[in-house]
Simulated assay, not measured.
Amino acid sequence: MPKISAPTIAAHRAQVRERILDAVASLTRDQGIDEISMTDVASAAGITRTALYNYFPDKPALLLAFTEQVTVNFMRRCEADLPAGASAARRLAGFVRFQLEGIIEHPHPAAAELGASLGPHAYQALADHVAPMQRLLVEIVREGTDSKEFDEVALEPTAKLVLALIGAQRLPLLRGETALPEAHALVTVFALRALGVTRETALEASRDE
């Protein structure tokens, strides 16, 4: 097992924890979250299974920590790549793209399947971790309605519908039945048209990189 040099025990633990979560990220690209075992993670991180349990007592705890990290990284990317000065249509298009890219980068089961795997308490904690993503989407829709770029809509239900559109592309993407650009255009144009955006503007936003 490779050694990790760190000035303090706390720094050492932080480095090992980062390696564990990096291992989960790597494994999800090949196996998907539902197929990963604690043994797989320990091996990929270069530590023993016993050592892994010193950081995460079980798989739900590990997946919750990983999900929190993914959410934090997503929010940072949105802050950097979805500037407040951009139109609501382009911000929504960017949000959709980042979410679809996340599905490809870290494959995961549908929410119901994941809930059954983790159990109700862990699933609620998971929902709490990803809540910032929904709040960001609600804010984008609010910006669009306030500026009259979007039609007046119920904010939270509309955000949930957009997330459902994104989720509907999960299996087609993972099965290779559709490519990212096609999925992005489909979801973005459909959502923006439903929000009252013209077809030309919706198409332009869907092509914006």
Rank of each mutant, 00 (worst) to 15 (best):
D58A: 08
A80N: 09
V153H: 07
L100G: 03
Q99R: 13
G167F: 07
A51D: 09
A86N: 10
I103E: 09
F150T: 06
I140K: 03
A93C: 00
T67C: 13
L64K: 01
R76G: 02
P120N: 06
L155E: 12
E79D: 14
A88F: 02
R90K: 02
G94R: 02
F150V: 07
V96A: 08
G167S: 11
G115N: 11
P132K: 02
A125G: 12
L161S: 07
H129E: 15
L63H: 06
L62F: 10
R135W: 07
P107L: 12
P107N: 08
C78L: 15
Y55E: 09
A65Y: 06
D58R: 06
L136P: 00
F66G: 05
A65T: 02
A168V: 00
L118P: 00
Y55S: 03
G94E: 15
V141E: 04
R142W: 11
E68A: 15
A86G: 11
E139H: 14
G144Q: 10
L52W: 11
E105L: 11
V141I: 15
H129I: 15
P157N: 02
F150S: 06
E113I: 03
E156P: 08
F56C: 08
A86Q: 15
E101A: 08
T158Q: 06
I104P: 15
I166S: 01
V153F: 02
K148S: 11
Q124R: 00
L165Y: 14
G167C: 12
P57C: 07
G94N: 09
T158L: 01
G85L: 02
P60I: 08
A125R: 12
A61L: 03
E139T: 12
R76A: 14
N73T: 06
A65I: 00
L161W: 08
F74W: 12
S147W: 02
V96Q: 03
F98E: 08
V162Y: 02
A61C: 01
L114K: 15
Y55N: 01
A127P: 12
T145W: 04
F98R: 13
K160A: 07
F56L: 13
Q69H: 09
T71I: 12
P132S: 05
L62G: 03
A112F: 03
A88V: 09
Q124Y: 08
V130P: 15
I104C: 13
R142H: 11
N54D: 14
Y123D: 04
R90G: 05
Y55R: 07
D128I: 06
H108S: 15
E139V: 07
L100A: 05
A111D: 14
G144A: 04
R77I: 00
Q69L: 14
L126R: 15
